[in-house]
Write a protein that binds this DNA or RNA. Structure first.
Lengths: 108, 108
DNA sequence: AAATTATGACGCAAATATACGACACAATAT
DNA sequence: ATATTGTGTCGTATATTTGCGTCATAATTT
């Protein structure tokens, strides 16, 4: 993280998205929200083999990257996927891999 | 890492790939190799704002996930992209995001 | 044979990430 | 009014990642 700012902005952004996806718990959260089973923190953490506070931290991490949104409903918080940002992330990752991976001649 | 094995195998695999992409230096390495400018460690590290040994560690990380391959050529090592594994990774990430992101009704 | 070059392994320090329990707080329910 | 419920924050411990210098090694070059 310390030297991240020495790299191109686009690489910083893409790597930050990938980092957010770089933990199975966070993927499990995204999948669970996608299945619409529930949007409530407590239900999510009951589903995962982690404590409620740890899940809460992973939720914060996903929120930080705007991949999910939380809407307060009384005592509860309804979380849901941010489709726009997920699509944007998907596009950026795909573009990067396409650009990287497309060369005709190989040097090996 | 400690509790990773408590999650589904597919989530473990996808998150491991994303983790490998979760650092700008590793993305820069992949991009550099994709541009075919050179495959030699020393040239790669000269290109990046990091020491040779640190770059070497990032190369090891990418090798661990089979995203790149190294071929010994005398004293030097020629690195190149592993197109097959990159494509496989791309497919897995896309499938995951598509499956996650496709639901009609939103709960928020 | 000695110097040079390219590389990985090793050890270490600092920074981050992961994981959890205890606590605080606000909105319901009793 | 009091208890319960759902959440986030805080502090803390451990694990992992990041980053670098030094060293060993093997292949070239001189």
């Amino acid at each position: 993280m310390a030297k991240n700012n020495l790299f191109d902005t686009d690489l910083q952004q893409i790597s930050a998205f990938c980092k957010a996806l770089g933990h199975p718990a966070r993927l499990a959260i995204l999948r669970f929200l996608g299945e619409q089973k529930s949007c409530i923190t407590d239900d999510i953490s009951n589903e995962l083999p982690l404590s409620r506070t740890t899940v809460s931290q992973h939720l914060t991490e996903l929120k930080k990257m705007k991949l999910i949104q939380g809407e307060i409903d009384g005592v509860k918080v309804n979380y849901c996927l941010n489709m726009n940002e997920l699509a944007n992330m998907n596009k950026l990752i795909n573009e990067f891999l396409k650009k990287t991976n497309c060369c005709e001649e190989s040097c090996c």
